[in-house]
Design a protein around this nucleic acid. Structure first.
Length: 277
DNA sequence: AAACAGGCCTAAA
DNA sequence: TTTAGGCCTGTT
């Protein structure tokens, strides 16, 4: 339980970039421990520390192999992806700056639900809602002496009902969350099937649901379904396109790694604007 | 106090 | 097919 798994000199791995680039909402910098992030994913609690070019993960080798190796997308060579961006000066600069980012392989339902919550919302409040929602409807589990809550299943939210979801201050998103949870529970929205669909089709499938538009769908696909070619366009990316790519067409970002490019640009531009200070 | 936040829906041109 | 308001809530 209290084993520590160590990775020496991880490639393209910066826990600050990974957890602050806005792709997931349940991990935060540890209150007191330096260089440590902690959070919950896949019904497990994780603490991860990065210092002196080493990674310390509080997990046993079974969970590392079965859960976290996949979660952190360790089998993907980000340097080779990054090198495909070398013909775009702005992008290559952004990518070099953000080269420690990895696109987490999050649970599809959690990613989808989280990005429904994210719409017209700010990150601290998104995190708060998700935490309260997990506390209210997620399965409780223990890690050491402490208790944590898994992200609620679609079925748990469906059974909770729209009113209880609304009471968590989700506002107008409550009915979107409820409807989506219902569809997933009843098998009318098949996330496993969507995982196998090409991105364009997967986008259409998700956008059948009211409350899921292009931004929410593409974020869910990128962060929850590992669709690297999904290209979320939010207010920041709009600004970036205006600022650096005025003369380009949108097909400029249509490679199989467009989503990763987006994330590099997104993080880079937000750092330029001191969003993370 | 009014505007805004990692959008989306609906109604109207 | 594109465009303007409105929307829950919390923060500034």
């Amino acid at each position: 339980m209290s084993e520590t798994f160590i990775i020496d000199r991880p490639n393209n791995f910066d826990i600050t970039q990974i957890f602050d680039c806005g792709q997931c909402f349940r991990f935060n910098r540890h209150k007191s421990k330096e260089n440590t992030y902690c959070g919950v994913a896949f019904s497990r609690y994780l603490e991860i520390t990065q210092q002196d070019n080493q990674l310390y993960i509080n997990t046993n080798s079974d969970d590392f192999e079965n859960i976290w190796s996949n979660f952190f997308d360790l089998s993907t060579d980000y340097n080779s992806i990054l090198s495909t961006f070398s013909d775009d000066e702005v992008l290559f600069k952004a990518a070099s700056f953000s080269s420690g980012i990895r696109i987490l392989r999050q649970d599809p339902w959690e990613a989808l639900c989280s990005f429904i919550i994210s719409q017209n919302n700010n990150i601290p409040r998104i995190k708060g809602i998700i935490e309260n929602m997990s506390r209210a409807f997620g399965e409780k589990f223990r890690c050491g002496d402490d208790e944590y809550y898994a992200f609620p299943t679609a079925q748990a939210l469906y059974e909770a009902g729209e009113d209880k979801i609304f009471s968590l201050k989700t506002g107008f998103r409550a009915k979107y969350i409820y409807d989506c949870a219902k569809l997933v529970t009843l098998g009318e929205l098949d996330l496993e099937k969507i995982k196998t669909q090409p991105t364009t089709l997967a986008m259409q499938s998700l956008q059948q649901v009211k409350g899921i538009g292009p931004k929410v769908a593409s974020c869910a696909l990128l962060f929850g379904f590992s669709k690297y070619d999904a290209f979320p366009v939010d207010v920041w990316v709009k600004k970036i396109l205006e600022k650096y790519y005025k003369d380009k067409t949108c097909s400029h970002f249509s490679s199989q790694y467009a989503g990763i490019a987006q994330q590099y640009l997104f993080y880079y531009e937000r750092c330029l604007n001191n969003v993370y200070l």
